[in-house]
Design a protein around this nucleic acid. Structure first.
Lengths: 150, 150
DNA sequence: ATAAATGCAAAGGGTTTGCAAAGGC
DNA sequence: GCCTTTGCAAACCCTTTGCATTTAT
């Protein structure tokens, strides 16, 4: 597994903030920032462990906080009772499409939604700050064959 | 405080299911089904207590489960780390506008969103089932004066 | 009288925090 | 060497569960 470019940016961030660059932070950042999936804190610890290293739960959470502060990571809540995280991409904002059978998560972007939410909020006196849209359904794979675990 | 019509429907549901109609269930149902706000389990217990009666936490949660099963109550997750509940109305579906300062929740409905989410889902091979949109911002009251606790 | 609901307290999951030990800088 | 991070375990919050007691039917 090669180092993800975003990890280099995280190292730069740590240096800027005069924060030590530790093996644990690198392992966690590498796992989180290079993942295609939306990982939970637990999954991060497990993933790092599979790579040989081992990190404590507290360290995972604290490093996640640092990553969130750096802006390189974004947190998501799919109503599972715990949070998931994904690398911040250049996409300004995107919505999620969740398969209720296999848990697969797809992303998409739609300008109209952005405008629509602003209009609706303002029409009710709200100063809009952000929004969150999740569409639930069954993905193509699950519609055909059986589901496959993520 | 007069009995809300939905409470009568809950009593009917309990009888259908051969479940005892207890004072606690009635108090909880009355509080939850007649509320204009989105209450948490804690707030339900507090609200009932203000009415003189007292109910245990477990009973609140168990009655909420029954209310959810009856279809008279709907649960919502605004990412606060706990659930809120609202009476199921005849409105087929509605979105939420949340004030990040005072926690106030407003509801609205928009046909275009319904259509738009279906189109987006289908364009990506998903069989759409439902969606959930929450717009966060600052409400009019909080924009002017200070915030007021809910 | 019987079977179920209640309340309390303890357990349970995800997350945070306190503190001694380990390790960057 | 100083100061931060780490890991462990205890603490926390919301929610669920076990069990003796109360209560609707």
């Amino acid at each position: 597994m090669s180092e993800h470019p975003a990890v280099a940016r995280f190292v730069a961030y740590l240096r800027e903030q005069n924060l030590p660059v530790t093996a644990q932070r690198l392992a966690i950042a590498q796992t989180l920032l290079s993942s295609e999936r939306h990982l939970s804190a637990d999954e991060v610890a497990a993933e790092v462990a599979r790579g040989g290293a081992r990190v404590g739960t507290a360290t995972v959470y604290r490093t996640i906080d640092t990553l969130l502060a750096s802006g390189l990571l974004v947190e998501r809540d799919f109503g599972e009772g715990f949070r998931r995280f994904e690398p911040a991409r250049d996409i300004p904002h995107h919505e999620h499409l969740v398969c209720d059978q296999c848990g697969r998560v797809e992303e998409f972007r739609d300008e109209r939604l952005e405008r629509m939410t602003t209009i609706v909020a303002e029409s009710r006196g709200f100063a809009r700050q952000r929004h969150r849209l999740v569409i639930h359904g069954i993905c193509q794979a699950c519609q055909r064959g059986g589901p496959r675990l993520p």
